[in-house]
Every structure is written in structure tokens, then in C-alpha cells.
């Protein structure tokens, strides 16, 4: 019988093999995928985020846990797809045009995925056009833009302007972050939210999704 408490521990400790093994056993026993995700996997990544926030965990531990989370999600994906279960929201994420720094973006991406979001990672040096193309083809709810350099921050503004021109701005929320980025800058360029770190980005995305759902209810 699957020891589901071990799933949580395996993700927190970054043990990908153990996490996948528990999930495979649980599936074979008929455990519902959403029960695994909501009762064990998301709480595990929330705990990882908490430890990162209070500097018990650092980037290596976070990436290790993210790898374990991915390994645990892998066998669940076909089951989720066939049952039509919706994620917490769909997020397009990328480091903006001209910027190749992706560690911060990867941390946010991992925690969002761990938080139950479907994350489509466009990588680094992503042009406004590529964001628009992906937003159109995926129907994303949120676009998350990252920049590490002051010189690439204007690409965030250009991406938001391009979304307006493409008629997509009303449909999608835009959140931004990165070392030089500030709330003031987010307000200035008309972003829907700013987060100063990866864990707060997940809370921000949840808040925006809840607002979106209330608005469309």
C-alpha cells in the first residue's frame, strides 16, 4: 500500500525516485490523482516555498524539490488529461527579450507548478511576439515576465503594449518580477501585479485567479 505521507516527505527532501514510486503505487491502488496533488504534493511544495522564504532552503534545495515534484506529476498527467480536470490556472512564463537570466524565472515556474498551476515556460530572451503567439495558442490566464537587468526591464513594458495592440490585454493578467523590478515600475507600465520573490508570486497568481473567477462567475 502506498505510504502517502512519504510522497510529501520525498518532495520536500527532493527525492524524485521515491516521489514517483509512491505516486505509481497509489495510482495502481486507484487513488484519485487530485487527492494526491491537493492533499500531498501542493502542501509539500508550499512547505518548500516556506523554507525558501525563511532561508532554510536555498536554490539547490528548491530545484531539487521541483525535480521531485515533476517526477511525481509525470505519471499523473495522462490521468488528469483524460479526466478533464482543470489546473488552478494556466501561466505563460518567460524572461523578457534581451535577458538570458533564468534562475529566478525557473524558481517561480517551479513553485507555480507546485501550486497546482499549469505552467508553460517559454524560456529566456522571449520577444513580445512570442508571448502573444503563445497566449493566443494556449489561452493562458496569466503571463509572468521576469528581468534581471535594468536595461531589459523596458521589454516588460513593450510586451504589455504588444498585448494591448493584439487585443489580448483584457483577457490575460500580467505579473512581473526580478531583482531591479519594483511595485512602482509595475504600476507605471500597467502590470496587474508585482512580486518580490518566488513564493509571493504563487500567492499573487492565486489571488489574480480568484479575482478572475469571481469576475466571470
Amino acid at each position: 500500500m502506498a505510504d502517502l505521507a512519504q510522497l510529501r516527505e520525498a518532495i520536500i527532501n527532493g527525492n524524485a525516485k521515491a516521489a514517483a514510486a509512491v505516486v505509481n503505487t497509489a495510482i495502481a491502488e486507484g487513488t484519485q490523482p487530485m487527492a494526491l496533488i491537493h492533499d500531498y504534493m501542493i502542501p509539500a511544495m508550499d512547505e518548500v516555498g516556506r523554507r525558501f522564504e525563511c532561508e532554510e532552503y536555498f536554490v539547490p534545495e528548491l530545484l531539487l524539490s521541483a525535480r521531485a515534484m515533476k517526477a511525481a506529476l509525470e505519471p499523473l498527467r495522462p490521468l488528469l488529461a483524460s479526466s478533464g480536470i482543470q489546473p488552478a490556472g494556466k501561466v505563460l512564463i518567460g524572461t523578457v527579450k534581451g535577458d538570458l537570466h533564468d534562475i529566478g524565472k525557473n524558481l517561480v515556474s517551479s513553485l507555480l507548478e507546485g501550486g497546482g498551476f499549469e505552467v508553460i515556460d517559454l524560456g529566456s530572451d522571449v520577444s513580445p511576439g512570442k508571448f502573444i503567439e503563445a497566449a493566443q495558442s494556449t489561452g493562458a490566464d496569466i503571463i509572468a515576465l521576469s528581468a534581471l537587468l535594468t536595461v531589459t526591464m523596458p521589454s516588460m513594458k513593450y510586451t504589455i503594449e504588444a498585448l494591448k495592440e493584439a487585443g489580448l490585454r483584457e483577457r490575460v493578467k500580467v505579473i512581473i518580477g526580478g531583482a531591479p523590478v519594483t511595485q512602482q515600475y509595475a504600476d507605471q507600465i500597467g502590470a496587474d501585479g508585482y512580486s518580490e520573490n518566488a513564493t509571493l508570486a504563487v500567492a499573487l497568481a492565486r489571488r489574480l485567479m480568484s479575482g478572475t473567477r469571481q469576475a466571470t462567475a
Binding site: 527532493g14 536554490v59 539547490p60 530545484l63 531539487l64 525535480r67 533564468d102 534562475i103 525557473n106
Partner: peptide, 10 residues
């Protein structure tokens, strides 16, 4: 690669 090096540490 920064991301890969972080995992190499483990």
C-alpha cells in the same frame, strides 16, 4: 549552466 550546477551540488 547555473540551473544544472545547482543540482550538481547534490
Amino acid at each position: 549552466g547555473l540551473n544544472t550546477l545547482m543540482l550538481d551540488l547534490y
